[in-house]
């Protein structure tokens, strides 16, 4: 279980204090498949980075499986079983896809095993395993490799930040499949940040983050119609205007 208590994250910009995450409280139960959504700039990625420890809290407390991890380094959190697939994965010169997968599993896995992870995200593994994770890879390829590495880690708490971004429609189909499989097979908690209805659709719970706060949090069946209702209303309003 992950408990976020009164989380606040502020940044200083031009002598002004911006509050990005604003006294946020949230409890995420084990084994759930949760999708976080909400408007652009609402604070979703920031929240994910705070959980991973990539950003430092201004105030608040985080309890993971009963242990206070507020002061833990990224490394410690990773070792305790938190994984994070970045919205924008980093490029590395001289580091190969295979190296990243080995790093993720923490083992010297065979090329075959590594290839299996890549196949899961729809990449023709043999072509990629020896590629460097540099700017020669397309955005979509990078995203899929990123997802594969988090799958390879197989930790009890995995966060995916907009995994569908930059992935073409055909592969998107497969991606949904991937997440449905995760949902069925993985015992841990999966937290996906997404704007996609198809992904929202396979959630157990949906959380809506807006202005750095939890706007809504509940079972999919309860939240999704509300969200779609709003979207429908917007669509209708727009079509009237034109």
């Amino acid at each position: 279980m992950l408990e976020l208590k009164d989380l606040t994250y502020q940044v200083e910009e031009n002598n002004e204090t911006l509050t990005i995450i604003d006294h946020l409280d949230l409890t995420i139960d084990d084994g759930k498949f949760i999708v976080i959504t909400g408007p652009n700039g609402g604070g979703k990625s920031t929240l994910a980075k705070l959980i991973m420890g990539v950003k430092e809290l201004t105030s608040g407390q985080m309890i993971f499986d009963g242990e206070d991890i507020t002061e833990c380094s990224i490394t410690d959190r990773a070792r305790k079983g938190i994984s994070f697939a970045f919205q924008q994965p980093v490029h590395f010169k001289g580091i190969k896809v295979l190296d990243l997968l080995r790093l993720a599993t923490g083992k010297n896995i065979s090329v075959n095993t590594a290839c299996e992870y890549l196949s899961k995200v729809g990449l023709c593994a043999k072509e990629y395993i020896d590629r460097e994770v540099n700017s020669s890879l397309s955005g979509g390829e990078l995203k899929r490799i990123e997802i594969a590495t988090v799958l390879a880690r197989g930790t009890k708490f995995s966060i995916f930040d907009e995994p569908e971004a930059g992935i073409d429609i055909w592969s998107f189909q497969n991606l949904i499949q991937v997440f449905e499989n995760i949902r069925k097979t993985v015992k841990g908690t999966v937290l996906i940040i997404s704007h996609q209805e198809r992904i929202l659709n396979i959630a157990d719970e949906i959380i809506v983050i807006e202005n750095g706060k939890v706007k809504k949090h509940g079972p999919k069946d309860e939240i999704l119609p509300e969200l779609l209702g709003t979207a429908d209303a917007v669509n209708r309003a727009c079509s009237k205007m034109s």
Binding site: S73, I74, T75, A78, V90, A104
Partner: peptide, 10 residues
Amino acid sequence: FYLMSRGISE
């Protein structure tokens, strides 16, 4: 940070 999030030290 990215690499640390895979469980290795700084």
